[in-house]
Each structure stands twice: as C-alpha cells, then as structure tokens.
C-alpha cells in the first residue's frame, strides 16, 4: 500500500516506544551490566570485561543444552508444521462442525504452561496415566522419570499436542482465503488432489505458514515451564533446555555474571535466526 512520508507519526508510536523501553531496554541494560562484572555482594563488584562470555562459550554444559535445544526445536517444527497443515486440510470449511472442531482444537492454546506440564506429567505416568499405560501395554518399556528416550518422547508429544493447533488454525485461515473458483477451475482441468495442494493451497498458505514457523521456532526455543514441570530437566540433564539451564544458573546458583552473559548469547541466537525468518517473511508478503 502507498504510504505518506510524515515524521509526525513518531508521536503515535511514542507510547509504545516508552513502554517497551521501560519493560525491555532498562532490564536488558541491567543484564549487560551484570555480564561484564563479578559480583560478590552489595558494593563489591569488579569489572572483568568479557570473561563471563568466554566462560559461557566454553562451558560444555551450555554446549549440550544448546544442541538439545536445536534438536528439540527441529523435531517439533518437523512434526507440527506438516501435521498442522494436514489437520487444516481435514477441517470442515464452514458450519457448526467447523466451529465445534475449532473450539476443541484451540483449547490447548489457552491452558497455562504449567497446567500443560501438570496434565502430561500425570497423563504420561506408566501406573496412573492413560498415555503411559497404553504405551506400556503395547509392550514398550516407558518411564519418563528414568529413561531419557521416554522423557524426550513425552516432551515432544506434549509440545505437538500443545502447539499443533496454532499451526492448524493459521493454515486453516490461509485455506479459507482461497476462492471457490480456483477449485472449480482445477476440477475442470482434472487436477489431482496432490496438484491442487501443490499449486493452489500451498502457495496461498505460504505467508501464514511462515508466521507459523517463526512463532513456533521462537516459542519452542524459549520453552521452560512445560518440560520443567514434567521432568525438571531430567533424567540427569537429558531434557535441560536453554531456559531451564539459564534459570538454574540465575536463580538456583545465583551466578549472576555467567547467567547474564549466557542470557545475552541466548537472546542473540534467537535474534539471528528470527531475523533470517523475518526477512523471508517480508520477501514472501512482498510478492
């Protein structure tokens, strides 16, 4: 759309800038401050430069948490995006069935994160939970408190359960914007179901799917409460993702300096990856 050049528009965005400066810039500056100091107590702090950054980048625990985090985000994106699209394709387009399915589908999105964790902590238990019992009845040994693979399966299935609806609803919104005429034209041309998907539905969903990938990447990369409630990062440190590691450092061990350096690196990684996605998104919506 054509936009007018007018710098007075700054007055309109001033409230947002002030609010975000208060709730983001000041705290971020505090983090930067911590990251270059060694703090022993009130009044006892020493400037130590980039030492904490060097230490964090060399910490093998951090490396492992980072690899785990990448694996987790990769796995959930690889499952949730195709599954969400399939669910969206299967949803009825209109009528009460459509409304009902959407209400059921959206329900997990509005459950507080720790309640999601609580639900799965109980639901996946081998003795008292439906999910855990069914898997064990199939003859597969499943116990998420002792076995790392079970713990990973539980966390991944929980995330798929929790967030696939977001992808499905986004994809559904994209599908609904396709005029009926496109489908009629495809039917006249004798296009196969796969061809309709490939040449009509997928292009129309491209921009909403980019949003879905962006949101899912950011949120899965910051995941904290759900795995923390279910496994507490265990067994051992098998499900200790970046946020869990960070909170342990900052609140558990009160290592403010290293935690702050870690925070900044963490933030920069998300920023970098999201910038790439964001640029792609801008390019897609420009087309």
């Amino acid at each position: 759309m054509h936009k007018t050049q007018d710098n007075r528009a700054w007055f309109l965005i001033l409230p947002v800038v002030i609010l975000v400066a208060f709730s983001a810039v000041i705290p971020l500056m505090t983090v930067v401050n911590y990251s270059v100091q060694d703090i022993f107590g009130p009044g006892q702090r020493y400037l130590i430069g980039l030492e904490w950054f060097r230490e964090t980048l060399r910490d093998p625990e951090v490396h492992r948490a980072f690899l785990r985090q990448m694996a987790f985000s990769g796995i959930v994106l690889a499952i949730e995006i195709p599954l969400g699209v399939l669910v969206a394709l299967a949803l009825p387009r209109a009528g009460w069935k459509s409304s009902l399915a959407i209400v059921f589908l959206a329900l997990p999105l509005l459950i507080p994160f720790n309640v999601v964790g609580t639900i799965w902590q109980l639901y996946a238990r081998p003795e008292i939970g439906f999910f855990g019992r069914v898997i064990n009845d199939l003859g597969i040994g499943f116990n998420y408190t002792a076995d790392p693979i079970s713990a990973w399966v539980t966390i991944v299935v929980m995330d798929v359960w929790h967030w696939t609806p977001l992808v499905a609803l986004l994809a559904f919104a994209g599908l609904r914007s396709i005029p009926d005429a496109y489908y009629q034209a495809a039917r006249i041309d004798g296009a196969s179901r796969v061809a309709i998907f490939r040449y009509i539905e997928l292009p129309k969903m491209r921009s909403v799917l980019t949003i879905a990938v962006l949101l899912r990447f950011m949120d899965s990369f910051m995941i904290y409460a759900e795995p923390f409630v279910v496994t507490g990062g265990g067994p051992g440190s098998a499900t200790t993702f970046l946020s869990i590691r960070l909170v342990n450092m900052a609140v558990g061990q009160f290592d403010l300096g290293p935690a702050a350096a870690f925070s900044l690196i963490y933030f920069l990684v998300i920023l970098l990856v999201s910038y790439v996605f964001y640029t792609i998104l801008q390019r897609v919506s420009a087309q």
Binding site: T4, P27, M218, S243, A250, A259, I270
Partner: peptide, 28 residues
Amino acid sequence: RYKFIGDKHVFFWLFTNRMAPPAVFLLP
C-alpha cells in the same frame, strides 16, 4: 499509514522483544 525516519528499524526492534526469552529478564 506513514513512512517516517527509522520506521522499519523500530518495527523490527519491537518485534525482537517478542523473541526475548522471559528467562533472560527474570532478575532485572
């Protein structure tokens, strides 16, 4: 509606806050 100095930068800067992990901001 408007183009103004730094509009794209402010928009992206705002958006970066959506990416900030809450864990980073706990203590501050």
